[in-house]
Simulated assay, not measured.
Amino acid sequence: MTRTLVGGGGRPGTLPPQVIAILTAELPSLAGEIVEEVRRSVPEYARQAGMSAPAAYQVTVEQAIAAFLDQFSGGGDSYARRDELCRELGRSEAYQGRTLDALQAAYRVGVQVAWRRVASVARERRLPAEVMTRLAEALFAYIDELASLSVEGYLEVRSSADELPGDHRRLLRMVLNPGAASGALAEAAAAAGWAVPDTVTMVAMPSGARCVREAMDGDVLVNLADAEPHLLIPGGYGPERAAMLNRALPERRSAVGLTVPLGEAADSLRWARRALALVEAGCLEDGGPTLCERHLLELWLLSDGPLLDQLARRELGALVAMPRTRRMRMTETLVAWLDAQGNAVEAANRLRLHPQTVRYRMRQISATFDRQLADPAARFVLDAVLRAYRLRERRPALK
């Protein structure tokens, strides 16, 4: 893309170094002000779903402002990072299923905030009118260029999504709709030339995930335009499908649901989305595609956070009053003892302690948890609550 921002076919000219230094000093606070004003002024971004990662947006704004100032200083020969960030904004709008109106409104708000700041600084520092004119012309032309880059990213995703025929999109919606009639699904599948499978495996992807459609098997149904992108793999998830997914999803983060009968596809997708949320929360490790079949216990234990909190208050309430250090010590000892099925020697090996130390601690713990430890059903609940908290918090069971 050309870098002509002001008439004349070249750079917008240079500015005195002291002017560039003055404007550069405004960059961090200006970027934050732009992001906040966009969130305040544009309804789509005022909602959490509209701007789920404010820090990422601020980085984009900072990069754009820095690149703008570089043009005046003679630096910034490479615009690759800035260009990609702007295109990613456009892609994000497309992935969220929105039009470009919100993003274009955000650009308008951004340039207004930027110009107000420049004008204020110019008045305070008494910058020459010639400098102000040059900055104004360059700034408004620059915003047009950034908006064009975002449009490129938006159209890139939309054209990719459009590669999926309309009848395939309808098929995917029908499969995920438990109320869809089997006859209607069979008829739609025949019209699309899609063989109805007995079983399916759903895959959940994060918002904004890149997908290489050319690398996807022809029988896979994909929805990239949804706020929560997903795809359907006919049949199971074996090595060949895994290799395909790795090629088709370069960023690798995704969650693969269980292979289920066709009528239970919505359940497979729900579990996959839950697993993906646990990865993003740090409860499950992000090792490329996360397979639900390897994390069934975690998905079950963490399926209802508020209920888990209620159980913790009932089962572990006695630990709350303890000092933090003692609470951590008692908790890790109890977990090891339960894992070792009451064998103090094995629990000591897990904790790298002397067995007598474990027995001493367990005598203290038994005074508090005597009922739970004596009753098999209560002991199971206690064990489940401790395991769930260890997974969810990735730190001692109680904070």
Results as ranks from 00 to 15, higher is better:
248 A>V: 02
193 G>E: 03
161 A>E: 15
196 V>C: 01
235 G>E: 07
238 G>V: 10
218 G>Q: 12
231 L>W: 00
191 A>V: 11
152 E>V: 10
216 M>P: 00
149 L>A: 08
150 S>N: 07
199 T>W: 05
230 H>D: 05
201 T>Q: 07
148 S>T: 14
193 G>A: 02
173 R>C: 09
245 L>F: 06
152 E>T: 11
153 G>F: 03
163 E>G: 10
195 A>V: 13
195 A>R: 15
246 N>F: 03
208 G>P: 00
148 S>Q: 15
205 M>K: 03
186 A>R: 14
244 M>Q: 12
233 I>E: 02
195 A>Q: 13
190 A>I: 00
204 A>C: 06
201 T>E: 08
205 M>L: 15
237 Y>I: 02
144 D>P: 00
186 A>Q: 14
189 A>P: 06
182 S>C: 05
153 G>R: 01
171 L>P: 03
199 T>V: 13
244 M>Y: 02
228 E>I: 00
236 G>L: 01
219 D>N: 11
246 N>H: 09
181 A>G: 13
170 R>W: 01
225 A>K: 08
170 R>T: 14
174 M>H: 09
236 G>E: 14
218 G>W: 07
216 M>V: 15
232 L>G: 04
206 P>D: 08
150 S>T: 12
176 L>A: 05
176 L>R: 09
227 A>W: 05
248 A>Q: 02
144 D>K: 07
212 V>I: 10
179 G>D: 15
153 G>L: 03
241 R>N: 05
207 S>N: 11
226 D>A: 15
207 S>C: 12
216 M>F: 05
225 A>F: 03
173 R>W: 10
228 E>A: 14
216 M>H: 00
157 V>S: 00
155 L>F: 01
239 P>D: 13
230 H>A: 13
227 A>G: 05
235 G>T: 07
232 L>K: 03
244 M>N: 04
178 P>D: 08
206 P>S: 08
230 H>N: 11
166 G>T: 12
181 A>D: 14
187 E>D: 15
204 A>Q: 01
227 A>I: 08
227 A>P: 09
230 H>Q: 07
232 L>W: 04
179 G>Y: 10
220 V>M: 07
150 S>E: 10
205 M>I: 00
194 W>Y: 13
159 S>Q: 15
243 A>P: 07
180 A>G: 04
172 L>G: 11
230 H>S: 14
229 P>A: 07
193 G>P: 03
224 L>P: 02
234 P>D: 03
157 V>I: 12
196 V>D: 01
179 G>C: 09
168 H>K: 13
248 A>L: 04
207 S>Q: 14
203 V>Y: 04
171 L>T: 02
194 W>R: 06
216 M>C: 14
152 E>Q: 13
190 A>K: 14
215 A>G: 00
177 N>W: 08
177 N>I: 02
150 S>Q: 05
